[in-house]
Design a protein around this nucleic acid. Sequence first.
DNA 1: CTGAAAGCGCTAACAG
DNA 2: CTGTTAGCGCTTTCAG
Lengths: 337, 337
Amino acid sequence: MENVTIRMLAERLQLSTATISKALSNSHEISEETKQRVLALARELNYVPNPYASSLRKKASHTIAVVIPEVADSFFAEAINGIESVAQEKGYHVLIYLTHENSGKERGILKDFQSGRVDGVLISVTTETASAPHGLDQLVKEIPIVFFDRVCEDVIAAKITTDDAAAAYKATSHLVAGGCRQIGLLAASPHLSISNRRAEGFLQALAAHGLPQNKAAVTYCSNDHATTKQLLKKIFREQQYDGIIATTEKLATAVYEVCEEMNLRIPQDLQVIGFSNLSTARFLNPSLTTISQPAFDMGKAAATLLFKALKNNSFALSEQQQVIPSALIVRKSTIAT
Amino acid sequence: MENVTIRMLAERLQLSTATISKALSNSHEISEETKQRVLALARELNYVPNPYASSLRKKASHTIAVVIPEVADSFFAEAINGIESVAQEKGYHVLIYLTHENSGKERGILKDFQSGRVDGVLISVTTETASAPHGLDQLVKEIPIVFFDRVCEDVIAAKITTDDAAAAYKATSHLVAGGCRQIGLLAASPHLSISNRRAEGFLQALAAHGLPQNKAAVTYCSNDHATTKQLLKKIFREQQYDGIIATTEKLATAVYEVCEEMNLRIPQDLQVIGFSNLSTARFLNPSLTTISQPAFDMGKAAATLLFKALKNNSFALSEQQQVIPSALIVRKSTIAT
DNA sequence: CTGAAAGCGCTAACAG
DNA sequence: CTGTTAGCGCTTTCAG
């Protein structure tokens, strides 16, 4: 069975396609009676409009893209939830692209968006991207785009972030209060703005508490799990840490693994705080003290901003910035006081 | 700056749009020289083809849809990873739709696919859908579709599942071997084929080990977390379980929560096995014995099947069935023997 | 090897 | 209130 088109409806009802089109979009220039007849037949024949014909004509796809490093991470999964909740409400479709931390792949994905495939983009960049935003600065001028969490600081665009520096400061202070004197921060990449903000807050806290900021303080890890574990073992051996802040979920679990393998007890030998949204954090052994990020809300805020821009052309999207606070949730991987 | 079209290239090169189109698609009827000139200008002007014009003409969108209940679940997140890995390789785009276990929402999403928006669909149905596959039996005839994990058994279509019954049997036997005599199975919904298969394997194992199959054995839980916890507390109070099989990730963590609140010790008072892909399962307190499902592989297999059908029209997609085995991973929430 | 022409299905101006 | 016409950007016969 062929797909039913607006023309078939027109022929069956002895009307023009224009009339059908207008009736279907509930135009005021069509009589109530005709609308009813059109709608009735449309339902009867199970008419479903061809979105691509419409997109081609209207130059709008009613589709947005979400570009993220990975999906098997509770932060991004929750962010998608937030995004999808508002997209669904607005009747938009969402395309998902995973970059796997590969900025070349990311570049290719972004380039395609110049085609008009999507009306807007939500992106959290790869660990490599921030420093060399290849074409992003360009794309930003051509299509509405909102960065969330992992932003490019030197690109002028809408950004949704969390209070990275403050959170790291809070985490550090908590460790200090719990007796830590040799604290290390684990970050994903020196190119990532959120890593840098977190390192900043961390170093400031160290200074404020009169602790030295030796070079062992901040460690940048690899995207590869095995490599990261090797690195952690090495630095744990070289340096007598008593506190660790893991700034990503993967790093937090890597620390747990390494501690198990090196027979380090958490929190007696090493206190641990993770930036994480793991719903299982409270059931870990020991339960993990976290900086819990508002992933759902960040996704929702990013999407809301984007849709505002899509609806209102004069909305100054690129000037929008929102910082959504995170929370320190104290559990048993640190020694509360 | 306006988007550059095939016509602009044509004008600049004094060629017809037809020639440009053919050159860009590397048609053999175009001379090597012309191809080069076209390609060069296309690159120079940063030509990006309009996918919707092409879709409209070719009646193919190079896009697939993934319809799942939720994304913040490691099974589905990993499945998306698997799907995306093959979609990216094939140059396809992937639209994500979350049903949130709402079959009405699901129906609406599926209906839209009659529009030609996507070339194929990968779906894991809601807890409510299996028994009343509203329109699914219809859609199956109109568009290539592959079910994965949560399938509709009475719909004739391609299906990727895991060995649910066998896995439940294995899990049950493991509990029996560990000394359990009063085992309960927690399932998401009596309408879900995977729930039923798992219950089947479970009951068979009970019988095989000479344990009674009383009505307390299988409990169907709600989609709502709080409601589920209430229910668990109730049945844990009424029935003296010594072993529990949680057939979803959410149910497994709910059991942990409830045990904590009721002061039940795992595994001394209650042994627990979860169907789960949580990477943190090994760090839970106690570490969780799991039936670990091949989520990535299932997603990959489903997508591979779909693309095979898209490429080869005569491929008998709806007859395809694949069962990918899961594995019992023994940890400390059960008593090994 | 290249081009002219038609048309995918829909919408928007403009007439009537 | 309804219809005519043109065209979004691309692909595909079919001629040349």
